[in-house]
């Protein structure tokens, strides 16, 4: 217990330091006094806040999906949330539907991602409410593949100058211009994270398998639906606000598990903190390395995260 508090203090300190770095550097030089002033200061503040929310959200969604599917390769997009959101976003961008307002693109991505997961869930569900994990993974892969080819089809018939915009969206984008969107994403992710932490013990039971979890007093069907909804809402919110950012939801929960063990009551909050810290640093890098040009955040997360994860894996065997 005591050691637990020390761990959180350490992780919170790391997050604060990374936020200080994220706020301190950027395409434009800012003195500390300008940080909270209107203008560049507020814009950067909003971006760092969004990055914290997105990093935490992706990691928690990854934690939930890995526990539910009992699959170490599960990540927030495993059930097709990414391809559903991608298709919806591409339609909005290519058809010029974003005319209707700033909320059309994030809203479309959110709806696309939630609908896809719901479809995968419905397809995988056998009669009598059984939900074999391998059917779920298979349905996720197949629906994802179909939607991805539809995305490719939409892109292939689109004017080339717009294809560029879709591609960028698919690589993740943490630029934020709207406090409302930031607020909405924050509310969804914070609520999702809170409920996950409160119910984290149920995730522990789920990792033993559904039958064992039932023997230990868990109402498996109810918990499963609840966690699916939670993880999908978090993923949807994150995708709507920032597009698709790979690797975070996969490697952060893994790395944290290697360091502190599989107890979800610690794993969920610690992954949220580590994910936020990681993404803030990765974004600071993406914003400044070629400033004022920005490089895609998805590229940075993969290039920084991949080798780090392999290093952890080599050092400590069991996953």
């Amino acid at each position: 217990m005591k050691r637990g508090w020390r761990l959180y203090l350490l992780l919170i300190a790391a997050l604060l330091v990374s936020c200080a770095i994220g706020l301190g550097i950027g395409a434009v030089h800012l003195s500390p006094g300008d940080l909270f002033a209107p203008g560049v200061g507020q814009l950067r503040l909003a971006r760092v806040l969004l990055t914290v929310v997105v990093g935490a959200g992706l990691s928690v969604a990854g934690v939930i999906f890995q526990a539910l599917l009992r699959n170490p390769l599960a990540e927030p997009y495993v059930l097709g949330a990414s391809s559903g959101a991608g298709l919806a976003a591409a339609m909005v961008i290519l058809m010029g539907w974003s005319v209707a307002g700033a909320w059309v693109l994030p809203g479309g991505a959110f709806v696309g991602s939630i609908l896809t997961v719901a479809l995968v869930y419905a397809l995988a569900r056998g009669s009598g409410g059984a939900l074999p994990i391998h059917s779920l993974l298979l349905a996720g892969v197949v629906v994802g593949a179909v939607l991805s080819s539809l995305l490719m089809f939409v892109v292939s018939i689109a004017p080339p100058e717009r294809v560029h915009n879709v591609m960028w969206w698919l690589l993740g984008n943490l630029q934020i211009f709207d406090w409302g969107l930031l607020r909405a994403a924050t509310v969804l992710v914070v609520c999702g994270l809170g409920i996950t932490i409160l119910l984290a013990r149920d995730l522990n039971l789920m990792t033993l398998g559904e039958e064992s979890a039932a023997h230990l007093g868990l109402n498996v069907n109810q918990s499963r639906v609840l966690f699916f909804i939670l993880a999908s809402l978090i993923t949807g919110a994150v995708v709507a606000a920032a597009g698709l950012i790979g690797f975070v939801g996969l490697i952060v929960p893994h790395s944290v598990r290697l360091a502190i063990g599989p107890d979800h009551r610690r794993l969920a909050p610690a992954s949220a903190l580590v994910g936020a810290t990681f993404l803030v640093l990765a974004d600071a890098f993406a914003r400044t390395i070629m400033a004022p040009t920005e490089i895609p955040i998805g590229v940075v997360t993969a290039c920084l995260g991949g080798p780090f994860f392999l290093f952890l894996l080599k050092r400590k065997r069991p996953v």
């Binding site: 950027g26 395409a27 434009v28 560049v40 814009l43 974003s98 004022p292 040009t293 920005e294």
Partner: peptide
């Protein structure tokens, strides 16, 4: 910026403080 169509930091636009903004997206 010595590129053709770069993705840029929105902070930079605030710093440039342009007197005119031209939006190319006709929608």
């Amino acid at each position: 910026i010595s590129r053709d169509y770069p993705i840029i930091s929105p902070e930079k636009v605030i710093e440039w403080n342009p007197q005119v903004v031209v939006l190319c997206d006709e929608t």
